[in-house]
Nucleic acid binder design. Structure first.
Lengths: 193, 193
DNA sequence: ACTAAAACGGAGAGCGTCTCCGCATGAGTA
DNA sequence: TACTCATGCGGAGACGCTCTCCGTTTTAGT
């Protein structure tokens, strides 16, 4: 009998690793906001005071970094869905969430390509975030279908795609109004016919 | 008195120039379809049998090339709008055009980022194509408003954005169905309330 | 045929991505 | 505290892409 089992150790992650991870995320957030999703990763690493190797170890792909940066936003949207579902009538809740979604995006225009990656990304990496957002809108849609407000054949994902489209096309000053109009159209068109 | 005026010459463009331009467009079309809007321009040049310099002289920016490649598609969409407007009742024409739009895009999935550039692009270069597409949908929307089928506050551009959104998010096998569902929703939501 | 304008195309500067691996550091242990 | 080795660091460098510059070639016009 071995006295020391191979120890399924899960050593505490090193503090410098954690520190670096945070630094990178912080800088990346700024960089993506300033320069869009194309920001130079080596630049981010440099500004964060780490080597490129470190950045790539933490986030193997650009997409992984993007997802990490926006993960908290995604989680906020998911939380909001639950909250709204508990507070408002089905249809109002859905409308409120959709408006929240576009507002949220309008606030940080740059998020759009990122979101696109998250929702559409083929990579397994996104499964998590995509799942969360999809779940969020599904909760609201299903509830509104059950209550009889919406057509039975409605798919939340379709709405999501339309929303992303709106946020994707860069646009002038009437951004917000345009977005609201579209949400109205989508909701109106989603009602039980 | 100068015997020879500076001759406002408009020399016939050299045949090799034209030939190269066509070659580049042809290859670029294939490349964008295969690899998306990120396809390597030097590669395109190489395959077209010209130097990078030649490609860049004809199309100073990647966007310029993209627009040139898809210009004919844009023109097709514009022509279709006119044709449909003359053949179908207002609402049917609009629906048909929207379906055509997504089908057209579904066929060459890769077109989406390009379209995005064309519609949203800040650069003056796009003015032409954007104008054409916007005009196309506006014709149909305005007609349907006039006939009383659609809400008066509808903006064709809003619909366009939604459509682009749909085409933008890469998606699996149910692409087409999803697109049709969304068109239905948009049309239903656009009716006079 | 001749010539000047037009177009070509490739070498190369510059930037970005991403990997590899020798070295530094800090978590566990006594 | 001292030791040790897994863990993490970071920079050098290979590679690919974009875009420019400029000497050479080609062609339209005469």
């Amino acid at each position: 009998m071995p006295r020391k089992q191979p120890k399924p150790v899960q050593r505490k992650p090193r503090t410098d690793a954690l520190r670096n991870r945070e630094r990178i995320l912080e800088i990346a957030k700024q960089a993506f906001t300033r320069f869009g999703a194309e920001a130079s990763l080596d630049d981010i690493a440099r500004q964060a005071g780490v080597g490129p190797g470190t950045l790539y170890r933490h986030f193997p792909t650009r997409d992984a970094l993007i997802e990490a940066v926006y993960r908290s936003e995604v989680e906020k949207m998911a939380a909001a869905a639950n909250k709204l579902a508990g507070e408002l009538p089905p249809l109002d809740a859905l409308r409120a969430w959709m408006l929240l979604f576009v507002d949220h995006i309008a606030a940080k225009q740059i998020i759009a390509p990122a979101l696109n990656s998250i929702v559409g990304g083929a990579s397994k990496l996104y499964e998590g975030s995509r799942g969360q957002i999809q779940e969020a809108i599904d909760i609201l849609v299903k509830r509104a279908i059950k209550s009889g407000d919406l057509r039975r054949d409605l798919d939340g994902f379709d709405l999501l795609r339309a929303l992303i489209g709106v946020s994707h096309v860069p646009v002038g000053p009437d951004w917000r109004q345009s977005a609201r109009r579209l949400v109205d159209i989508l909701i109106a068109g989603s009602r039980r016919g």
